[in-house]
């Protein structure tokens, strides 16, 4: 290699632009790297229990409910709205499904369709209240969520309804592909659909415009209200899907335990927005975040650390994620 060629190579490797490209790459993949490091650390500490396929298939299969929930959240979040009712939507949908299937003897297929419709309707109520009365989405969805939780308890007599159709349980958790329950693949399919819509359709772009600049979007001829209502209906639908998966996973409809998924889902949505496509809520980042968080928690519980670590982990992750995204955004603003 001649001297000049070597210089060229040197410049290419260490020029400011290539450094910027490296920083950019690092930011995009940081989450994946941290996830791999986490796996490596726990793997080294407890290779016999942690580094087993059964452990991983449990991790992948058990988290599909939270993945779907978090994916549902990023739709209204992209449009600039919060949906705090999504976890009560999950338990509500689960109870509706169980009541129809177990108590009223509906065939499972019909019960599933009806449950999905209920989820969409709940989202429509959220959207209508937010858009029509111009109320902050945090307040509306908190109210509607609490109301739905009350309905859930009333509908199911405050009890867990068991005896759900076996075919649902089989389709979610029993049947496996490459040793991983099918529920995981449903979540992956939904992730792919949302990724496609976000990245490659005009609709996805409109959602983003509405979230980033409502007035600009309105003056550009986008029907802002319709987009926002549509986003809430989508998150309602995703909540219902998560509810069905949850019932499929446990074989019963528990009126309360699903409520605890709200925080992990938010943590994953915000943590996901710091990676893959930094600065934007994105489905792959969100999905990876769910698995990163649960890997940490599983690892720590294998190390027999107490269960409160879960709250520390999820709560901490949410705050750190928001701080990180604020730093990303702050850098963007300094550019202006």
């Amino acid at each position: 290699m001649t001297k000049s060629r070597r210089n060229m190579l040197f410049n290419k490797l260490f020029s400011p632009s290539s450094r910027a490209i490296f920083v950019d790459w690092f930011e995009r993949s940081a989450l994946v790297l941290v996830w791999i490091i986490t796996i490596a650390i726990f793997g080294a500490l407890r290779p016999e229990t942690f580094l087993t396929w059964s452990n991983f298939s449990i991790i992948l299969g058990s988290q599909s409910v939270i993945v779907v929930l978090a994916l549902g959240l990023i739709i209204p979040l992209t449009a600039g709205d919060y949906d705090l009712s999504i976890a009560s939507g999950l338990t509500f949908a689960g109870t509706v499904l169980a009541v129809l299937n177990v108590n009223n003897g509906w065939p499972i297929g019909m019960a599933v369709v009806a449950t999905l419709v209920v989820g969409i309707l709940m989202g429509a109520v959220n959207g209508f209240l937010v858009v029509y009365f111009r109320i902050n989405s945090l307040i509306v969805t908190m109210g509607v969520g609490t109301f739905a939780h009350g309905l859930t308890l009333w509908l199911g007599n405050q009890m867990t309804i068991s005896g759900i159709s076996d075919s649902l349980v089989e389709a979610v958790i029993v049947h496996r592909l490459f040793g991983v329950p099918l529920g995981f693949y449903y979540a992956l399919i939904l992730c792919t659909i949302i990724w496609y819509v976000f990245s490659y359709t005009a609709l996805g772009r409109r959602l983003l415009y509405v979230g980033r600049g409502r007035e600009v979007a309105r003056l550009s001829g986008i029907n802002v209200d319709r987009i926002r209502v549509g986003a809430f209906m989508s998150s309602g639908l995703m909540g219902a899907i998560a509810g069905i998966l949850y019932v499929g996973t446990t074989g019963a409809a528990d009126p309360s335990s699903g409520m605890t998924f709200l925080l992990p889902a938010f943590a994953a949505a915000f943590l996901g927005a710091t990676s893959i496509l930094p600065g934007r809520f994105n489905p792959w980042g969100t999905t990876i975040s769910v698995y990163f968080l649960v890997t940490g928690i599983t690892g720590l519980s294998i190390m027999s650390v107490s269960t409160f670590v879960q709250d520390l982990f999820y709560g901490g992750a949410l705050v750190i994620a928001v701080v990180l995204s604020q730093i990303v955004r702050g850098r963007e603003e300094r550019l202006t």
């Binding site: 772009r205 983003l208 415009y209 980033r212 007035e215 600009v216 963007e332 202006t336």
Partner: peptide, 15 residues
């Protein structure tokens, strides 16, 4: 506030 979204890219605004 009304013309363009400053946190999105030029291509995203123009298109």
């Amino acid at each position: 506030t009304s013309g363009a979204i400053s946190t999105l890219s030029v291509v995203e605004n123009i298109s």
